[in-house]
Every structure is written in structure tokens, then in C-alpha cells.
Simulated assay, not measured.
Amino acid sequence: MKLKIAWALMASLISFGSQAAGVVWEQQPDSFMGIRIGGPASDIPECTDTGSGLCKTDRLPGREGDIGHTWNLRNLPDLGFPYRGDMSVTFSGDIREIGIISRFENAQELEDIANERYGRVPGTFRDENTGDNLRRIWEGDFTRIEYLRSAYMDSVILLVRLVPVSLADYENAKLEAKKEQEREAAEAQRKAREIPRKARLL
């Protein structure tokens, strides 16, 4: 029961944001637990009695916004501690969010994994402490990651969420971000060339 409450709490805390201008988050993920964020949910097969690979099962109604339904995930990678995985899917069939949840006793291990995997780049990362809870947030152009640990709920949660509405938006956003970085680099090079020229004129 506490795990269900924890999921509901985490869902209620989700809000969108974007990373600071000019900040490059090299460790921003486009996949999580071997699943492509924003990809079609049909890429993940439904579980069978004989299958042993990653699969989805127990389809449930969506809990918010444009989430059509959620699936429980089976045969996820071994993290060294027990956990459960879920995948939220839009009405159009794209994977919007992937989350894992475990007991509070495993909070430090999951925190260490997240910190190593996603880093702590200024402008993309922040902590929000509320009482006994720790909420850690990574925000990028394409993904938002939230880590929440709660002793009261006896749980720790890690969510990786696609910010754009669709996979097409995701790919376009990535392309635009790359173009913007190239424009900024070209502008910086232009200004660097102008400095010696101005010095000569003086």
C-alpha cells in the first residue's frame, strides 16, 4: 500500500522545467533500463510464460494528463537490490515515462547509481529537501529525472520522463539544441577573431 501511495506522491510532484541556457548536459539520457524514452511501447513485448527477456505486463489505466496507460515491467537489469519497474505510455503509444521503486533501505544504492550515471552538472541539477524527504531533480532539454526518497513511505523512486509530447518533438528538440550549440560556438569563434583585429586598429 505504501508503494502505491509513494507512486501517487511522486506523480503529484512532477512539473516541467528546462535546463539553464548555455548549459550542456553530456549525460542526459535517451534511454533508461534498456528502454528508449519516447520510443513506441510496442517495442517491448508482452510477457509470456516462456519468455525471459525484458517484457511488459499488467496494463493499467493512466494516472495523469495524456498518459493512456501504464505497464509493469519484468526481467529488468540486476541492480544489486530488489525493485519494481513501471512504464507510462501516451494515448498515441509512445513511452513517456519509466520509473523504478524500491524500499527505503536501498535508497543510498539507487542514489549512487543515479549520481554516477547522470552527474551533477550545475544548471541541470538541484536538490529539494522537504522534511524527511529528499527530492533530487535533473532537468534537460529532452528528459527530466526525479529521485525521491521517503523514510515515511519506506520507499525510493527514480523516474526518467520525456519532456516533449511525442518522439517527433523529441528528435526535433535534439536537432534544434545541436544547431543552437553550433551557432553559439560559431559566434564565440567570430568574436575571438574580432579581438585581435580591434587590437590592431587601436
Rank of each mutant, 00 (worst) to 15 (best):
A11R: 11
A11F: 07
A11M: 05
L13Q: 12
S15K: 12
S15L: 13
F16W: 13
F16I: 07
G17F: 04
S18V: 06
S18W: 05
A20Q: 15
A21Y: 11
A21H: 06
G22Q: 09
V23H: 04
V23C: 00
E26N: 11
Q27L: 10
Q28V: 03
Q28S: 09
P29K: 13
D30M: 10
M33I: 12
G34L: 05
G34H: 08
I35Q: 04
I35A: 02
I37C: 01
I37V: 12
A41P: 02
A41S: 14
S42Q: 14
S42Y: 03
D43E: 15
I44E: 02
P45I: 03
T48D: 09
T50L: 06
T50H: 05
S52C: 03
S52I: 15
L54D: 05
C55G: 01
C55K: 00
T57M: 07
D58T: 09
D58C: 06
R59V: 08
G62Q: 04
G62I: 03
G65M: 01
G65F: 11
D66H: 09
D66S: 07
I67W: 06
G68P: 10
G68Q: 11
H69D: 08
H69R: 11
W71F: 14
W71H: 04
W71K: 05
W71C: 02
N72I: 07
R74G: 00
R74M: 09
N75S: 06
L79Y: 07
L79E: 06
G80M: 12
F81K: 12
P82S: 10
P82G: 11
Y83G: 04
R84C: 04
R84T: 13
D86I: 13
S88V: 01
V89Q: 06
T90A: 09
S92N: 14
S92F: 00
G93E: 03
D94Y: 03
D94W: 03
I95T: 04
R96D: 13
E97D: 14
G99M: 13
G99I: 02
I100D: 05
I100Q: 06
I101D: 01
I101T: 05
I101H: 13
F104T: 05
F104V: 03
N106H: 15
N106D: 14
A107E: 09
A107H: 09
L110F: 08
D112L: 09
D112F: 07
D112C: 00
I113A: 06
I113D: 03
A114E: 13
A114K: 13
N115D: 13
R117K: 15
R117E: 13
G119P: 07
G119N: 10
G119R: 04
G119A: 10
